[in-house]
Nucleic acid binder design. Structure first.
Length: 257
DNA sequence: ATGGTGGCTTAGCCA
């Protein structure tokens, strides 16, 4: 079973690139972020034609947005991350697909270290940790995939000294992501590639992509029951070289059935 | 040093 996560940066703007990738990669399950569309306007038909069930979550104004696409039925759907009644942003959805519990997460970027949005990001990571702790009590195969907007280690940023303390690589954010992992989750990419620098996001500006100056901020985090079934995990970085690409590349893994 | 790029929505925000 092939499971992918991808921040598409607008599913409508990315539709040709997204369909091309779905046709080539053929994931059984895809967790999308930053779809930037209200559910009624999510372009579900071309995906349904390809055999996918589509669950899209969006907010008024079409900001953020997360989705789950799966070839098997999507059941026991839960929208929104508990812990903040004022948080109406569409950044979390979870469901059961076959014997797998999955979540698509779009952690707030945080905009600027020290800002209100940064505090919201740190609080969101705390809420995610609390919620994942309760999910792990079920001892199921669980995959929490998404754009975490945090690069966990020096291997995950193109210049650790330069970027130390900046957004997506601030010690407070890394500590929150580590706290999440310390619940007993596995970073699927690092199981197979413990020492190789690798990125999933490159800025649109300047020479970021051309010079491979990226960050690894998109992660598939696996419960022990899912990690025991892991076969492969990879980053489809070629997708970032497409015409009119997302600034993020898809990350996928395969689990034994 | 507050640029640079992109998407959504309309000049400003968020990323």
């Amino acid at each position: 079973m092939k499971i992918a996560t991808w921040n598409v940066n607008s599913i409508r703007a990315r539709l040709p690139v997204a369909l091309e990738w779905f046709d080539a990669a053929r994931p059984d399950l895809a967790l999308l972020q930053e779809t930037k569309v209200v559910p009624e306007q999510f372009p579900a038909e071309p995906f349904e034609e390809r055999g996918y069930n589509v669950v899209a979550c969006g907010e008024a104004g079409g900001r953020n947005g997360v989705a789950i696409l799966a070839k098997s039925p999507i059941e026991d759907l839960r929208e929104g991350l508990p812990g903040d009644l004022e948080d109406q942003e569409a950044r979390y959805v979870e469901a059961m697909v076959r014997d797998l519990r999955v979540a698509s997460v779009y952690v707030p970027n945080g905009t600027q270290v020290g800002s209100e949005r940064f505090a919201f990001k740190l609080a969101f990571l705390d809420r995610l940790r609390s919620h994942v702790a309760s999910l792990l009590e079920d001892e199921e195969a669980l995959i929490v995939g998404g754009d975490y907007n945090v690069a966990p280690t020096p291997l995950d940023v193109f210049d650790p000294a330069l970027l130390e303390g900046t957004i997506c690589y601030h010690p407070d954010e890394r500590a929150k992501l580590r706290a999440l992992l310390h619940l007993g989750l596995y970073d699927a990419y690092r199981i197979g590639e413990p020492r190789t620098p690798a990125y999933t996001w490159w800025h649109y500006q300047g020479r970021s992509w051309r010079a491979n100056q990226g960050l690894r901020i998109d992660h598939l985090l696996l419960s022990p029951q899912a990690a025991d079934r892991l076969e492969t995990c990879a980053i489809d970085r070629d997708v970032r070289a497409a015409r009119a690409p997302s600034d993020h590349a898809p990350v996928w893994c395969s689990l034994t059935d």
